[in-house]
């Protein structure tokens, strides 16, 4: 009996595949902890700049997309082992990552990284203990500078470390820190100079998936040409102008 049920389920799954065959299924992996790029809103749904960009890309490329949450640490391993098909998680295009996965063209321009410290912190803070998220371009930047790096699994914990005094400063994408500093009632301030590290942000795909990569590139081209991408950047990042 059990076998029949299992067999039936397999048949149902296969025929369901056939029914959807005309629309390619794509699972979009994201972190869901990096507002305004991507975050989990109060309805428990994935929301943010990248959600809107991703949904529009899927529409243009005629893909049937589902969003999947995965923590940042294992986001690349789970892509290459096939748990989802894309990474849309504010991931800068770097040579190091490019050796493991491929990227679409950028959908967000290179964004300088900024240091944030507590009120009254001097510019020297950036040479002290600096918090950064694990496996980010910022973490490797701090590690190769004179400062001491402390790594955290989520972006929020890096800022919390500064608030609690565990770290002198945090280094992260300016786009992420701007809202946090603006809403901290003066508790947090930008320190030091901004640094340009990493390229723009692109969608990560498996190296064997060049078909999908081409489709994504074409859709991003369209969005750049018709101004919708600029509009989304201006909507989610206050005071920024669309660069495309």
């Amino acid at each position: 009996m059990k076998k029949t049920i299992l067999f039936g389920a397999v048949i149902a799954m296969i025929s369901a595949t056939a029914a959807f065959a005309d629309m390619q299924q794509v699972r979009m992996g994201t972190e869901g902890a990096y507002p305004p790029y991507n975050f989990i809103n109060d309805n428990g749904e994935i929301d943010g700049f990248e959600r809107e960009v991703g949904d529009r890309i899927c529409e243009l490329a005629e893909l049937e997309c589902t969003w999947v949450k995965n923590d940042w640490d294992s986001i690349i391993p789970n892509l290459v082992s096939g748990n989802y098909d894309t990474i849309v998680a504010g991931m800068s295009i770097t040579d190091e990552r490019d050796q493991v996965i491929d990227f679409s063209q950028e959908y967000f321009p290179p964004d300088p990284s900024a240091f944030v410290g507590l009120k009254g912190a001097s510019d020297d803070a950036i040479n002290g203990v600096v918090a950064a998220q694990t496996a980010t371009i910022q973490a490797s930047y701090v590690a190769s500078s004179d400062a001491t790096v402390v790594e955290f699994a989520t972006p929020d914990e890096t800022v919390a470390a500064v608030r609690s005094g565990e770290a002198d400063a945090v280094l992260a994408d300016a786009g992420y820190l701007e809202t946090i500093v603006a809403e901290s009632n003066g508790e947090l301030i930008f320190v030091g100079e901004r640094v340009a590290i990493g390229g723009g942000i692109g969608i990560g795909v498996r190296e064997s998936d060049s078909d999908l990569q081409a489709k994504l590139n074409a859709a991003i081209d369209t969005m750049k040409a018709d101004g919708t991408l600029n509009a989304l950047i201006e909507k989610w990042f206050e005071g920024r102008e669309g660069p495309y």
Binding site: M13, I14, A16, T17, F20, Q25, V26, R27, E64, T66, V68, V80, S81, G82, D85, V100, I101, R206, E207, S208, D209
Partner: peptide, 24 residues
Amino acid sequence: YQGNDFVVCTVAKLPLSISPQWVH
């Protein structure tokens, strides 16, 4: 195994890509 990638055909995926999130 293609380089770093583990690639099986669409119908061999577990769960299938089209399955709703709760199945995953």
